[in-house]
Structures are given as C-alpha cells and as structure tokens.
C-alpha cells in the first residue's frame, strides 16, 4: 500500500502518461468532429519536418503533409486504437508518402540519365539517421510541458541538472524525477513509434 501511494504521489507530481492522447485516439477512430484538427495540431510539426528534411523542398513537403492528413481522415476506419496511437499511424502514412515522392523522383532522374547516358551517382542514405533524430524530437515534444523543456535542456543543450533547476525555478529532485520518468516514457514511446512503422 505504501509503495502504491508513493507512486501515485509521484505520478501526480510528474504527470501521468498522456491520457489525452488515448482519448484523442478513440475520438479520431470514431470520426468525432474536431479530432482531425487536434491530431493535426499534435503531430503536423513532426510530419512536416520529416518531409522537409527528406525531400528538401518546401512546396513538396507541404503537399505531402496535406495529403498525409487527408488520407488519414479518409482511411480512419482502418485505424484501430487498440493497436497503437493515432500519431504513430499518421507518421506511418507520412513515411509511405515520403517514400513514394522519393521513388517518383528517382524514376524521373533515371529517365533523364538514360537520355543523357550518364551513370547514376551513388545513393547515400544519411536519411535514415536523420529520420530517427526527427522522430526522437517528435517524442520529446509529445512529452508536453514541463518535461519537453527539461529533456531539451538536458540532452539537446547539454545543461546540468542544477542549471535546469535554477532556470525553471524547480527543486533539483523534481528535475531529476522528471528526467527519469521522461527517459522511461521516451523508451516506450520510441518502441511504439518503431512498431507502428
């Protein structure tokens, strides 16, 4: 009993595991009004950044983002909230759209090269590593305040726990507790993100 109570207190202090996301998953599956917009607010920066880095073209990235969400809405009956988050599902659609756009581009380039009789350049794949980094960024953003900021300061900006505590006017123990719980949540989140692709 004592252990359970201590964990409950910690949960209240540090924030439970994104119950809003679960509600949104079910609302989106049911086609509830406003659910697409809320999903868009939540995951469009991740989708747009993935498209932008992969395609390197602002117009194409915006087009892929738009088509991803339209497609998600039209095919939502194929989405099952019991099998994963709507976020993960949308990112999966986005990655297929991006792959399609790259594929179309490769075909076009090969066609031109055949005409010019040039050999194709070696295709490097720095994209996979960058995609992974963007997905991690997306998971951090999803933690929500104050955990997203604490994790950004600790890992992206290399601040010490003491510096973070001072900057956010937060007890040092609370900062450490947020970081531990964020790490656990991110591990689960990244596993789920990988599983849904």
């Amino acid at each position: 009993m004592t252990i359970a109570r201590v964990e409950m207190v910690a949960d209240t202090a540090v924030g439970a595991d994104r119950p809003d996301d679960r509600a949104l998953d079910h609302e989106f599956a049911a086609g509830a009004e406003g659910s697409l917009e809320r999903l868009y607010r939540s995951v469009s920066p991740l989708v747009h950044t993935l498209a932008l880095r992969a395609l390197g073209d602002a117009t194409e990235a915006e087009d892929v983002t738009q088509q991803t969400f339209v497609s998600a809405w039209r095919t939502r009956e194929g989405y099952d909230p019991d099998r994963g988050s709507a976020r993960g599902w949308v990112v999966g659609i986005a990655r297929r759209r991006i792959a399609d756009a790259l594929e179309a581009r490769t075909r076009e380039r090969r066609r031109l090269e055949a005409v010019r009789d040039e050999s194709p350049p070696a295709i490097a794949d720095p994209l996979a590593a960058e995609t992974e980094r963007i997905l991690v960024r997306g998971e951090v953003e999803r933690l929500g305040p104050p955990r997203d900021q604490i994790v950004s300061l600790a890992f992206f900006e290399g601040r010490t726990h003491e510096q973070i505590a001072e900057r956010l006017q937060m007890p040092l123990g609370t900062v450490k507790s947020h970081l531990r719980r964020s790490l656990l949540a991110l591990r689960r989140g990244l596993e789920a993100a990988d599983a849904s692709l």
Partner: peptide, 14 residues
Amino acid sequence: SLVDAGTSGPLVAP
C-alpha cells in the same frame, strides 16, 4: 539517441 537527436534542428511546423 536523445543526445544524437540534439545534432538535428528543432521541428518545423507547417
């Protein structure tokens, strides 16, 4: 992977 993600820029909203 968090440290590595720090080498990438922040997310860009559409």
